[in-house]
Amino acid sequence: MTTREDIEEMIHHVALNDRAAFEGLYAATSAKLFGIILRVLKDRAAAEDVLQDVYMRLWKGGAQTFATGRASPISWLATIARNRAIDRLRRTKPESGLEGVAEPADPAMGPEDLVVASSERAQIDGCLDELNPDRAAAVRGAYLDGETYADLAARFDVPLNTMRTWLRRSLISLKDCLSR
């Protein structure tokens, strides 16, 4: 079982260009990150490119920016993977929406090489549940599908400014809830 401390240790060693640690980190985290990137991009070839890019960046200095204490290492890595995937999505966004594109699944590939304890139960889920369901869906859509204000306005069929105001209010409510 790979613990949070193990992964932290590996990231710190990757920062020192320790190849064994890099290989260990990849073995322990790549399936989770690939899952996240695939969830965002829904395109296997693009997801492979982004995964490669994420690990290259970690190796080439990115790992040095990890600070112990704030984010858990897996949350930090998940943020990087998600952000890189969203960047990629923005560059290649097709005309039509991504709704309804089937998520690729490969039953032959199991998650056996990743076991990471999820220490903090997702507080944000509880707080999103307190929002109007449409608005919670908008926040999730922005985070996981890279939807912009314009995309969300189109999806919920409201003017752009209305969507912006909705979402800003929701973010304030979220913040209040998260700081309770």
């Binding site: 690939f34 969830r39 704030r70 998940a78």
Partner: peptide, 22 residues
């Protein structure tokens, strides 16, 4: 915010990347 939002990825299932990628 990054930390909070990142927990939205907790329920996403891992998918093993292709063998040759590493």
């Amino acid at each position: 915010w990054d930390i909070h939002f990142s927990s939205l990825t907790e329920t996403i299932d891992p998918v093993a990347p292709p063998k040759g990628l590493f």
